[in-house]
Design a protein around this nucleic acid. Structure first.
Lengths: 347, 347
DNA sequence: TTGTAGGCGTTATCAA
DNA sequence: TTGATAACGCCTACAA
């Protein structure tokens, strides 16, 4: 057994200790460290030196209580089971964390399955205990209680994507509708007429938009809509796999399949592989997101790339402005995804 | 522009409001809500009802200050650039978060590149401001300043893996050494004699162990050690890709390649694919970790599976016991990885 | 330029 | 069974 090193942690050094050490008032110490002007330069230096020497760092609890601010933002990762599968979130979280740190904020994380009591609890606990000063929302639903709730509580938040109706909040949206249209046109230009779409559950805004973009594309290319070419996935590899199998079994299988995200598309690739269908030759496959993983499928995946990391950073910038009550330069941003053509849609 | 909904958040309801509302003292309210025994059942009910009605939730800042505890644990994700690439971490984080929540803790996250000033700053800020009550460490180095520092500060932490020397702290280690030996034996049983190993940078404990296990395996199988079959990767796909290319170019290329983790192995598969080498037939490839993604490489990857999610949960259990000063049932756990044989090592 | 004092919202100690 | 009161550590009018 290891020694009893834990448990009796040395009492942390407080501002009083520093003050006592210097025979100064805590007021002076506080302001010297905060860099106020009305403190003698010499004093300031002495204070700083002493603070460093004693290893003084302000207690965040005390500071939070006093300032009525935690300097923490929260993000709930949509989970499914024991992991969050989508590499999208790795990148998103990195962006949130990096930007937060650079503005002296920290990032609190939780995982919860969308639209469950657990999800509600996380948010309400975070908010009403004022553990976090604001939250980032992603993977929005058309009817999203989160946005309504936060709006209602006047609690700061910023959104990746948007809800179904009016958006009375700051957000960054990627115009996936026009992205998908572009993708359909690309496939059509390759000669495809039977283009399938494996979507997400209807409650997600992204499904509404991407499906609409798909339809727009068909219309633009004069391809009749065929309901048998539309399937519902769940944004996972397994969902894409299942849906693709069903499409392959149909009387008139598609020659091209679009997945609502890269993970779905990767599921399609695997299903094709299992059937001995050569992706890129016999079947075109495309996804959405442009995560790093899309480069590493076999063959590499044609996809619509969105700037995940940058978007996350900008959301944090917006959120922190909101928290601080600073004016927002831009609060409702719409970006275009970039069509990245790779081998999965053929040469 | 959206309406000025933010900025003037309604003043939160405090314990005083509840007390006033009921004509009780805040003391009574506090204890009624904390479920103390010495409060009249009827009073307790009235208090609870009022709290719910008024939407009262204790301020975490005030509570933290008073209790000298934040009920937050911290985890720094080893990042590289704008993302953390390894799906290992998705699962690990899910485990940390889920267990934390179930014990009324929250999870604070940061990303930092190992052995950088940024990394040091995160830890020292978290610790000395008492933002977190304890931290989880992973991907340990042989000489790990983090462990030393935390031990020195008597700050609670729990470790996935371990450092090079004496381990005076609670940890859960996966016996990757014997795992790798097992893997080498498996490959030898398939007839392989030229088995390569693409490792991690030498500073990581996992490299010491896995490399040792590799050597053990060679010895057990009477295969002479060949330095030209050992390469250094960096635990990423790109690293595996590069190292594999070099191995292919060598005078006597290997017939089997082991990656220090699944990501490395996936890089090998891609490099092989690019050369037209059929993995599973002409070349055996194996990894380590057993993340979900290893099922989805082409062909599926033989790997050593470790229970990432469960390990993360158990680490949190250990850490919280430490924080609370509870006795630890087990504090130094060693688990065996499970050899999962898939197509990448042939039929 | 420095110090005094009050309070942020809780919990805990003690007395009633 | 309940209540008054004192911290927890920091920030900030206001006074000196």
């Amino acid at each position: 057994m290891y020694p009893k090193r834990f448990g009796k942690m040395t009492m942390a050094v407080t501002i009083r200790d520093v003050a006592k050490h210097l025979n100064l008032s805590i007021t002076t110490v506080s302001r010297a460290l905060d860099g106020y002007e009305d403190v003698a330069p010499e004093t300031r230096e002495r204070v700083r030196a002493a603070a460093r020497e004693l290893g003084y760092v302000p207690s965040s609890a005390a500071r939070n209580l006093r300032r009525q601010r935690a300097n923490i933002i929260g993000y709930v990762i949509p989970a499914s089971g024991t992991r969050f599968t989508d590499p999208f979130f790795s990148e998103f979280i990195s962006g949130l964390g990096d930007q937060a740190v650079s503005q002296d904020f920290d990032l609190l994380i939780s995982t919860a399955t969308p639209d469950t009591p657990a999800e509600q609890q996380v948010y309400s606990r975070w908010i009403s205990s004022r553990l976090v000063d604001g939250v980032i929302l992603s993977r929005m639903r058309l009817e999203d209680w989160r946005a309504n709730h936060l709006l209602d509580k006047k609690f700061p938040f910023a959104v990746h994507g948007r809800t179904g109706g009016q958006a009375d909040y700051p957000f960054i949206e990627i115009d996936s509708r026009s992205g998908l249209t572009q993708l359909v046109k690309h496939l059509a230009s390759l000669g495809h007429r039977r283009i399938a779409y494996i979507g997400a559950p209807a409650k997600f805004t992204l499904q509404r938009d991407r499906f609409a973009g798909y339809c727009d594309g068909l219309i633009a290319e004069n391809i009749p809509f065929d309901a048998s070419l539309v399937a519902e996935g769940d944004l996972t590899r397994a969902g894409g796999f299942r849906a693709a199998q069903a499409l392959f079994d149909a009387p008139h299988p598609p020659t091209a399949i679009i997945g609502a995200n890269d993970l779905t598309a990767d599921g399609v690739i695997r299903a094709a592989h299992k059937r001995g269908i050569v992706v890129g030759r016999e079947l075109a496959v495309a996804g959405y997101d442009g995560t790093e993983e899309s480069e590493h499928t076999q063959p590499p995946l044609t996809t619509l790339r969105q700037p995940v990391y940058e978007t996350a950073r900008n959301l944090v910038i917006m959120l922190i402005s909101l928290i601080k009550g600073d004016p927002l330069l831009q609060s409702q941003i719409i970006l275009q995804p970039e069509l990245v053509i790779r081998e999965s849609t053929g040469r």
